Simulated scan of single mutants.
Amino acid sequence: MWLVTLLLLYSLQEANSEDVVSTRLYFVNASLQRVTFSSSVGVSLPCPAGGAPHAILRWYLAAGDDIYDVPHIRHVHANGTLQLYPFSPSAYNSIIHDNEYFCTAENQAGKIRSPSIHIKAGEAQTNCKHVK
């Protein structure tokens, strides 16, 4: 009887250890605060957060407004990368090209928000930082 109870306990422990899933959210690069990019080049900015299991990544304007795609101007890829495409000076829009953005990562562990990142377009490539 004692041996059967011990085997039963061991089987339960094995089953429980397989069922345990580690959930977490984390920042990849929370120190990024400012990105200046050339209007002739554009910029791709990965969300500076992630998670396990896979986290849903979303971008927002600092005011909390959802980011929406603007064809050939701004796009959020399925992997959470925010892309601002190259543009002509006449297509400049301060809401898109000179604003603060933040990203969130969300999974079963909860939701985290990155610090705000000021993204600003410039005309010359000197002093520009292209983030990939």
Results as ranks from 00 to 15, higher is better:
Phe87Leu: 06
His75Gln: 13
Val70Leu: 12
Thr81Phe: 00
His77Glu: 10
Ile73Pro: 01
Asn93Phe: 04
Gln83Gly: 04
Val76Leu: 07
Gln83Glu: 13
Leu82Ser: 00
Ser90Trp: 11
Asp69Arg: 10
Pro86Met: 03
Asp69Ser: 11
Ser90Thr: 11
Asp66Thr: 08
Leu84Asp: 05
Asn79Glu: 06
Phe87Pro: 02
Ser90Val: 12
Asp69Leu: 05
Ile95Gly: 15
Ser90Asp: 13
Ile67Arg: 01
Ser94His: 12
Ile73Gly: 04
Pro89Tyr: 04
Ser94Leu: 11
Ala63Ser: 14
Phe87Thr: 01
Tyr85Val: 05
Tyr92Lys: 03
His72Ser: 15
Asp66Arg: 11
Tyr85Ser: 09
Ser94Gln: 12
His75Ile: 07
Ile95Ala: 15
Ile96Asp: 02
Gly64Val: 00
Tyr92Ser: 06
Leu82Phe: 02
Ile73Arg: 15
Ser94Lys: 12
Tyr85Thr: 06
Ser94Tyr: 11
Asp69Ile: 04
Tyr68Trp: 10
His75Asp: 10
Asp66Leu: 13
Leu82Ile: 02
Ile95Phe: 14
Ile67Thr: 10
Ala91Asp: 13
Gly80Tyr: 04
Val70Thr: 08
Ile96Glu: 01
Thr81Ile: 05
Gly80Arg: 05
Ile73Cys: 05
Ile96Gln: 07
Ile73His: 09
Ile73Thr: 11
Ser94Asn: 13
Ile95Tyr: 14
Tyr85Ala: 12
Asp65Val: 07
Gly80Asn: 05
Ala63Gln: 09
Asp69Pro: 00
Thr81Tyr: 04
Pro71Gly: 03
Ala78Gly: 09
Ala63Ile: 08
Ala78Tyr: 05
Arg74Val: 15
Ile67Lys: 00
Ala78Ile: 08
Ala63Asn: 14
Leu84Tyr: 05
Tyr92Phe: 15
Val76Ala: 05
Val76Gly: 03
Tyr68Cys: 12
Leu84Ala: 01
Asp69His: 07
Ser88Tyr: 11
Asn93Arg: 11
Ile96Asn: 00
Thr81Asp: 10
Phe87Met: 08
Thr81Asn: 09
Pro89Gly: 02
Pro71Ile: 02
Asn79Ser: 09
Asp66Gly: 06
Asn93Leu: 09
Arg74Pro: 00
His75Arg: 15
Arg74Gly: 06
Thr81Glu: 06
Leu84Pro: 06
Tyr85Asn: 08
Ile95Glu: 15
Gly64Lys: 04
Phe87Cys: 04
Gly64Phe: 01
Asp69Gly: 06
His72Met: 13
His97Lys: 06
Phe87Lys: 01
Tyr68Gly: 11
Ile67Cys: 08
Tyr85Arg: 14
Pro86Lys: 00
Asn93Gln: 12
Arg74Thr: 08
Gly80Ile: 06
Asp65Asn: 10
Asn79Val: 01
Tyr92Pro: 04
His72Arg: 14
Ile95Lys: 15
Ser94Phe: 09
His72Gln: 14
His77Pro: 02
Tyr92Asn: 07
Asp69Gln: 10
Ala63Cys: 12
His75Phe: 11
Ala63Phe: 03
His75Pro: 00
His97Gly: 02
Ala91Thr: 07
Ile96Pro: 00
Ser88Trp: 09
Tyr68Asp: 10
Gln83Cys: 08
Ser94Ala: 13
Asp65Pro: 04
Pro71Asp: 08
His72Leu: 14
Ser88Thr: 12
Leu82Thr: 03
Thr81Ala: 08
Ile73Asp: 06
Ser88Lys: 12
Asp65Tyr: 08
Arg74Leu: 15
Gly64Ala: 02
Tyr68Thr: 14
Asp66Glu: 13
Ile96Met: 07
Ser88Asp: 13
Asp66Tyr: 11
Pro71Gln: 07
Tyr92Cys: 05
Gln83Arg: 13
Ala91Glu: 14
